[in-house]
Design a binder for these strands. Structure first.
Lengths: 212, 212
DNA sequence: ATGAATTGACTTCTGGGTAAGTTACCACCA
DNA sequence: TGGTGGTAACTTACCCAGAAGTCAATTCAT
């Protein structure tokens, strides 16, 4: 590489390399998309927040969908990788669920909004965005389905519709806990993990009580 | 009231009384809002589906928000009334949860989409719509909170944040089951109630297994 | 005929996307 | 060292589609 003054060609407002700037835009866009949703997010606003002009965003990402797809790609890999990592462990049933939640809390500690990206109802359902969403949710749903299947099988439930409904419910639980977490920024990841453990424990106490 | 030929003044395309026509619009609008969301729903489309013109919709409901508020009012009352009715029963803990789900399934059997109306992130967060949403979710959340508080208290958990998180989770569970139900139109209300019962049972079996 | 009900045709505004110009950096040459 | 053209980065100013909302004109029951 050229010595001293890096090879920054062109006329950046600063000598900030493009990749770094793209990274910053993605960060800001993820927050915007994750909180307001795809439809309600304004590209011009994101650009202004990033301190650049709208056309530059288009120059980098091609379109609003392209920007969203880029955010999704980062978020999806992050999440799916972590869930896969945990799935490789030996926990089963409820234990596996708790471990997974723990992992999610740890990974998303300071990126809580990204969970929403994968479940945005206002995102386009066709085209590149849909493909990227499908790709990542497929990975995640597969693992969720696998875990739930295992859990239910241990209890003798094997009906595929039951597994399907339970998987949806599990994902909904994760969803709502993430929402709650977003609404309670002062709560840390370990705090959340302990809280969830406590709540599951309470459920079981109650269940056994009402069984007697 | 006027005798014989009802008091239908003006020039309806048919002799359909206004109230009835309003009802039909609300029905269609609820489906549209509930499936596509507030932002993605187009007033002109709703009007076309109802076989009338857009200005007439505005004449009836004043604005898109007015139309949405009217849908919400019907949906909110329906749901909150039913949940309150069940809360007046003597079921507690998990049992109360199951009873509530049963009631929801029964009430929403052929209006499954309305549950989404109350949880639409694309709806305006200020003005009349926000007020109506707040009013109904306040009723529902209060009952959910009450039920969860009771359930957790039986297990010795009294931390307010725990109750808050668990309430959010409970509402998320209902949410995801409703979504699953929407995606499986062939499943009846009783079928769903039995399914949920089965799944809760399976969870308990697994929990006791892993405890030993 | 009269007036309420209803509509076709309009205005307005928001927001995605683009064309054309401007700036800053670099390579090359005298 | 300083001018000169080339090029990539960046911005200003614009276009345009779609959807909310409005109004004068029209239809219809009485």
């Amino acid at each position: 590489m050229t010595t001293g003054t890096k090879r920054a060609s062109g006329a950046g407002t600063k000598g900030v390399p493009r990749v770094e700037r793209e990274q910053e835009i993605l960060q800001l866009a993820s927050v915007a998309f994750g909180t307001a949703g795809f439809a309600a997010t304004n590209v011009a606003d994101v650009a202004r927040e990033a301190g650049i002009s709208k056309p530059l965003v288009y120059n980098y990402f091609g379109s609003k969908e392209g920007l969203y797809a880029a955010c999704l790609d980062a978020a999806g890999s992050l999440l799916a990788d972590e869930i896969e990592r945990i799935a490789r462990g030996d926990a089963v049933g409820i234990e596996r669920g708790l471990r997974t939640m723990e992992g999610m809390f740890a990974v998303l500690e300071d990126r809580r909004h990204v969970w929403r990206l994968l479940h945005d109802r206002t995102a386009p359902t066709t085209g590149r965005v849909a493909d990227v969403v499908a790709q990542h949710t497929a990975r995640i749903d597969k693992l969720a389905h696998e875990g739930v299947h295992e859990l239910l099988a241990l209890a003798g439930v094997t009906d595929e519709l039951d597994v399907s409904a339970m998987t949806a419910t599990w994902l909904g639980i994760v969803d709502s806990l993430m929402d709650w977490w977003v609404a309670h920024p002062d709560q840390g990841a370990e705090q959340m993990a302990r809280r969830v453990g406590r709540l599951v424990g309470a459920l079981l106490v109650d269940a056994n009580r009402s069984e007697s």
